Amino acid sequence: MDETRQTLNELLVDLFNYILLIEERNLQESKVALSMTEVHILEAIQKSESKMMSAIAKRLMVTQGTLTVSTSKLVNKGYVIRERDEEDRRIVRLALTDKAQHVLDVHDQFHSRMIDKVLDELDIGEDEALVKSLSNVLSFFKEQY
């Protein structure tokens, strides 16, 4: 592997590891008593249009059973509410509480600072090249999945 490829490989691996570690530390410092997995579940609920368990499980790439277990913990902790669909009682939709919104605000602030740092020294056009490169990496991951 040539030097550029080796450096890029190390950067990607280190970035991934640091993001997870720093996100977790940021939550702890903000007195959020949730794991990163739980925060990412809240984020998936927030971003889901239908709020259905099946759609959220798909977004998170987990089974509905796995999501059900995690969601039960978040319901018990007061971050999520389960709601049965009025027309089809088999459908369960998830809703976030105000307590969950606070956690997502903390999480979003971290991501905002991270993105500001990434874009801080890029010239016009370089940000588009970075987005294209990262999109290609994501496409690779999706193909592998």
Rank of each mutant, 00 (worst) to 15 (best):
H107Q: 07
E23H: 07
D14W: 00
S54L: 08
L60Q: 05
H107P: 00
L94F: 06
I19W: 03
L130T: 05
N17Y: 04
M61F: 08
I19F: 10
V137H: 12
Y79S: 00
L20M: 11
V75G: 01
R89K: 15
F16W: 10
N9W: 08
K132I: 12
L119M: 13
E128H: 09
L8N: 07
V103T: 04
A33H: 07
V131D: 12
N26R: 06
F16S: 13
H111G: 04
N136C: 06
M1L: 10
M1D: 08
I81T: 07
Q144E: 03
Q64V: 08
K31N: 13
Q101Y: 05
R89C: 00
V32T: 03
E87K: 15
F110N: 02
V80L: 02
I56G: 02
T63K: 04
K47A: 14
I45Q: 01
S70V: 01
L34F: 00
I115P: 01
Y145I: 10
T71E: 02
V32N: 04
R93G: 04
N136K: 15
R82P: 02
M52H: 15
G78P: 14
L34W: 04
Q46W: 02
I81M: 10
I22P: 00
I56D: 09
Q46H: 08
T37C: 04
R84I: 05
T68F: 13
L34A: 06
I19L: 11
T63P: 06
A33W: 00
Q109V: 03
I19Q: 14
S35V: 05
E121Y: 05
N76T: 02
D127L: 05
K77T: 07
V69C: 01
E43F: 14
V92E: 05
V131F: 12
K73V: 02
A44I: 09
E38M: 05
K77P: 03
E121W: 06
E49R: 14
K142T: 10
I115A: 10
S70W: 02
R113H: 10
V62A: 07
I41R: 01
V131N: 07
Y145G: 12
K99N: 08
S70Y: 11
F140C: 04
L74Y: 03
E87V: 13
N76E: 12
M52E: 14
D123A: 15
Q144Y: 09
A44T: 09
S70Q: 13
S112L: 10
L20Q: 08
N17Q: 13
A44S: 15
A129V: 14
S112V: 04
E23N: 01
D120G: 03
D14T: 15
L119V: 10
